[in-house]
Nucleic acid binder design. Structure first.
Lengths: 137, 137
DNA sequence: AGTGAATTGCGAACGATTTGCAGTAAGTGA
DNA sequence: TCACTTACTGCAAATCGTTCGCAATTCACT
């Protein structure tokens, strides 16, 4: 289902701002800051305002189409994905790599079994050094 | 080793602001926002300024005495603890519970073995509903 | 094309955190 | 105990990502 269809299906209007913000996120398939997104949106259309970008992002977040993450100072966004996919964040180059770790589901079960806490979503982030940074001495 | 000793050992001065901020964190043993901390510090001494609280917190963070976490909008701080201890955050009452999950170390090993990423620290947060909120219907 | 409401652009407001600076007080050595 | 040095503080102003109010625009439907 395209973003247009998703929006229309829930009675939201398909606008240039929303379409472009989605397009940028979808093309990047990585963690982008609001500033990154705005900049790339401007590559397509200078006239889109930052407010509209923020508004599109929060709408998408509500519809669970994107996932917002706080990395250090600022927020980043990426298309939503399963929470068993964890984030490996390189401390040197700041890149974020996805890693599908089935163990995450064990962790989820463990918490469900041992405690009386009922998990809904799990968020695993690992900081460290990525391959290219560690091989670059 | 007391906070005074830790500070002195690294040639930082022991000041009222630093002592009180540490005392508040240590007493609470939970996640406090900067505003919470300031308020509790003021219970001891009205004259401490928020800048000093922020400055103390970032010093402590550098010395790895505290752990800063972004929860939604704002940052929270707590005394540092092992990263195999994960955070269970209740979506209803916003409380954060600690849970010692040995599985975290498996996850760490798994990443180390399967990928070429070298983990240094791991951060697991689980959102869900805590016992008292789920029993309160 | 015409209508009404949803959405936008704009600029101002916001609020947590930070900074510059002059004054204060912690540590040191006499 | 008393100076002396300078790290640290309080204050107020600045910063900066994000949000808001509102008039103008644009979308969806006829």
């Amino acid at each position: 289902m395209s973003i247009d269809e998703v929006l229309r299906a829930q009675d939201f209007r398909v606008t240039r701002a929303r379409t472009l913000v989605w397009q940028v996120l979808d093309e990047a398939q990585s963690h982008l800051s609001a500033a990154d997104i705005l900049q790339r949106v401007h590559d397509y259309d200078e006239s889109i305002n930052s407010s509209s970008v923020y508004r599109a992002l929060s709408l998408f977040a509500e519809l669970e189409l994107v996932r917002e993450t706080r990395q250090g100072e600022l927020s980043t966004w990426e298309p939503a994905h399963d929470d068993a996919v964890i984030h490996l964040r390189c401390e040197l180059c700041d890149i974020t790599i996805h890693f599908d770790a089935p163990t995450v589901n064990n962790l989820r079960k463990q918490v469900g079994n041992i405690t009386n806490f009922t998990p809904t979503s799990i968020d695993v982030r690992i900081s460290g050094v990525c391959e290219s940074c560690s091989s670059a001495t």
